[in-house]
Design a binder for these strands. Structure first.
Length: 572
DNA sequence: TACCCGCGCCAC
DNA sequence: AAACGTGGCGCGGGTA
């Protein structure tokens, strides 16, 4: 059962019940339609969610509907996020011939103004908002989407079905994680800052320890004045001191022998801490003991999540000591070990690599089967193969890797060559890469014209290789993102069941174990101390299930490492 | 003053 | 060791 919701003008919500489609008949599914006062929506959803088989809610955009429900303690088990699904189906190779994909761009292709979603979150209700694309009919759109999926091959149907479900589950999880927030101890954060930088100072003032390091830098350079925050000025100062640097990047500077380098790198590290995650960051982002960033499911072209605000997906290890569980609670931190190489193993069906991945450490396994000599080499070689490295150590190790794991390497090479020809590639579940832009095509055709000069040819090859590196990585990174979504969705369902069992069917999100953070291949569950063992088991169950869902019986394992900690800093 | 872009660094 | 994928974000320094 699906229930489509649409906000109408005035104080009403359109509610359309759709039965599941019969498997093979052209009969339109039975429909019943009504409207309810918007003030009654939360109670309506709550009532249906309490029934044995709750519906799948179909709405235009989870960020517009779900915060208001969570704010009054209503959770939903499943949804269809039409905007995310539309985006997938418009571009998917599986549905390229569908009416949905071949229609001109319409209101469902418009990007939602993030300010609207943010207001929905802040106000806790979407009903005062002036929503865009007022003529968007979710029932018509949902029908088009189901037609598109039904028109795909049987394989396409099942894979896309899983992808759409996972993507929509991700939308629910993202909203729930913002609602719950990541526990953040502002005082612990202040202590970390004071240790590193000295006592708190107002914005614009250089903290004592940072100022002291600057004095060391100036002394080593023999200058009276220096603003290291200005790369241009810093570079000139270094050159005046006889240092042949072409930039002020860390990796270039650390190769140089000079007394200024050590204090300068120390200065940069501290300065980064101050500007990116200093006192201003805490004041801006930590409220009532929680950090609540906005997560953006599907925000990355490969299907990874992006985030908006506070740099949520780039929290430095340096400040993770401020992420502290509530009294009597713990974090269960779980990490999928070497996820991307394992994804590549499963996609390519490389038996030798599957053998190497039998244990928890795939890279060590590659050493043990005699493919490479050391674990660091295994890691560098694998990452290089997935990113398209050609030079340096990765490049040198690639031939060995190709000999040991021919099918895995052939798989990414094939994806790269497709990209170099300007073709699209798809993930396991059917997310399809975009086509290169107009400029790219012009560069390629200019090079293939008669009498094209060497520079044009060179440019075209460079651009082709670059797009090939993108498609090479897309298939692996994108499929890893799909695995992670399935993992997290499976865990969410299990945590919801655990909450119903231990607290009761109407348990609020934060009364029981719940997800608070997600970082591409890592999840953090905030969890009452006595539940940690059960949660660890659920995390492992969900990982095994994700592998089965996406790859069936392929002989590839997806081990997860888990840690039960009070401080996120202790997880790794 | 508001915006834009390159630089540099954080995460995976 | 150094150039090979996806991002967010703060800064300096430029321009409208």
């Amino acid at each position: 059962m699906h229930i489509v919701l649409q906000q109408l003008d005035g104080a009403r919500v359109r509610v359309v019940h759709l039965e599941d489609r019969p498997t093979s008949s052209g009969e339109p599914p039975p429909v019943s339609e009504t409207t309810i006062p918007r003030a009654d929506l939360a109670a309506f959803v709550r009532r249906l969610e309490a029934e044995p088989n709750p519906p799948r809610w179909v709405w235009d955009d989870t960020t517009l509907w779900y915060p208001a429900l969570l704010a009054v303690g209503v959770r939903v088990a499943r949804c269809v996020d039409l905007r995310l699904s539309h985006n997938l189906l418009r571009n998917a190779a599986f549905t390229a011939d569908s009416a949905l994909a071949t229609a001109p761009a319409g209101p469902w292709d418009e990007v939602l103004d993030p300010r609207v979603a943010q207001r929905a979150e802040a106000v806790g209700t979407l009903f005062d908002l002036d929503l865009p694309g007022g003529e968007r009919d979710p029932v018509a759109e949902f029908t088009l989407q189901r037609d598109a999926v039904d028109g795909a091959t049987p394989q396409g149907r099942s894979q896309l079905g899983l992808l759409l479900a996972a993507e929509s589950a991700g939308a629910l999880i993202a909203t729930e994680m913002t609602f719950a927030g990541l526990p953040w101890d502002a005082e612990a954060h202040d202590r970390i800052l004071a240790d590193a930088l000295g006592p708190k100072v107002p914005p614009g003032v250089r903290p004592a320890k940072l100022a002291a390091v600057l004095e060391e830098v100036k002394a080593a350079l023999g200058v009276q004045e220096l603003s290291p925050e200005s790369p241009g000025e810093l570079l000139k100062a270094l050159q005046r001191a006889g240092i042949n640097a072409t930039s002020t990047r860390q990796w270039e500077l650390q190769e140089i022998e000079h007394p200024v380098i050590e204090p300068l790198l120390r200065y940069k590290k501290l300065s980064r801490l101050l500007t990116a995650n200093g006192w201003t960051w805490v004041e801006t982002w930590v409220k009532n003991g929680r950090f609540r960033p906005t997560y953006v499911p599907g925000g990355v072209v490969t299907g990874r999540w992006a985030s908006d605000g506070g740099g949520a997906l780039q929290l430095p290890h340096q400040v993770r000591g401020a992420v502290l569980a509530d009294e009597g609670w713990r974090f269960v931190v779980a990490d999928a070990a070497q996820l991307e190489p394992r994804i590549l193993t499963a996609m390519s069906g490389d038996r030798a690599m599957a053998d190497a991945g039998r244990g928890v450490d795939l890279y060590q396994g590659m050493v043990d089967v005699g493919a490479v000599d050391t674990r660091p080499h295994a890691k560098i070689a694998m990452l290089g193969a997935m990113y398209g490295a050609t030079t340096g150590e990765s490049g040198r190790l690639l031939p060995r890797l190709t000999r040991a794991f021919p099918r895995a390497i052939e798989f990414v090479e094939t994806a790269a060559r497709a990209g170099e020809r300007g073709e699209r590639v798809s993930t396991r579940l059917g997310r399809t890469s975009p086509l290169p832009g107009e400029t790219w095509r012009e560069i390629q055709s200019a090079a293939s014209m008669e009498g094209a000069n060497a520079a044009a040819t060179q440019r075209a090859r460079m651009e082709a290789r670059s797009w090939g590196r993108f498609t090479r990585n897309f298939v692996v990174q994108g499929t890893a993102a799909e695995w992670a979504l399935c993992w997290m969705a499976g865990l969410r369902t299990r945590l919801q069941a655990l909450a119903a069992e231990t607290v009761g069917p109407a348990a609020a999100l934060t009364e029981s174990a719940h997800l608070v953070f997600f970082l591409h291949d890592e999840i953090v569950v905030h969890c009452p101390e006595h539940q940690t063992e059960r949660v660890v088991a659920l995390v492992r169950e969900a990982a095994a299930e994700a592998g089965r869902l996406i790859f069936g019986t392929a002989p590839v394992e997806f081990p997860v490492t888990t840690a039960v900690v009070t401080s996120y800093a202790d997880a790794k």
